[in-house]
Nucleic acid binder design. Structure first.
Lengths: 101, 101
DNA sequence: CGATTGGTTAGGCATGTGCCTAAGTATATT
DNA sequence: AATATACTTAGGCACATGCCTAACCAATCG
């Protein structure tokens, strides 16, 4: 998942899809890149679960998988929890020191 | 920054440092990896700003740079904002349709 | 001072990644 | 049916990445 987000093109794709579903053509338009290369990026994102896609006729429409984005975000929250826990321990220690004083 | 977080070893390093500062030796102990390889990971993280390090004598101590972590987290928040904005627009549209009905 | 410890530098390798071009398939339009 | 459009498949290349070993430097310990 983080591997998938390592590439700036892929991050931009995800960002764009948060604005709403889009076709492969729409998504690829702003990028000066050969289509197969671009689609490879989509595949990485889809493989990681961050987006889904559906082909109707000859048009493939991509959508962001927000639950999966939330999974990635949760990692940061877990870091914050660790850090906060550390501050809580520091606070406790400071209180202990004050009591002893 | 996301590039730096793409590697599981590096994510674990960051996670560990959120528990508190640690020396290179301490950090590398759980990993079955040659020290130079491990230090290369630290360098990637430091280069990306996610951690800082300071050498005192022969001991290098690493610390997480929480502000920088917050920068990465902010990207997810910006996605959420886009998504929320989209829902707001949908709500408005639904209300408009209801009014017309 | 010699030995040990903690880290750094240098060079190398196998694999992965991000891009390309060419050719092809399927669907839609004229 | 011919043409255009949207995507897919296949193969390739240059560079990046994640690991290794060997050698070295600096600080600390006994």
């Amino acid at each position: 998942m983080f591997q998938a987000l390592a590439d700036p093109t892929r991050r931009e794709i995800v960002r764009r899809l948060c604005e709403g579903p889009a076709t492969v053509s729409e998504l690829s338009a702003p990028f000066k890149m050969a289509l197969p290369s671009f689609v490879q990026h989509l595949q990485v994102l889809e493989q990681s679960g961050l987006i889904t896609s559906e082909k109707v006729g000859r048009v493939r429409t991509c959508r962001v998988a927000l639950e999966r984005i939330a999974d990635a975000e949760a990692w940061f929250e877990s870091l914050r929890a660790l850090w906060d826990e550390r501050f809580a321990q520091l606070d406790t220690l400071l209180e202990t020191l004050q009591d002893e004083k």
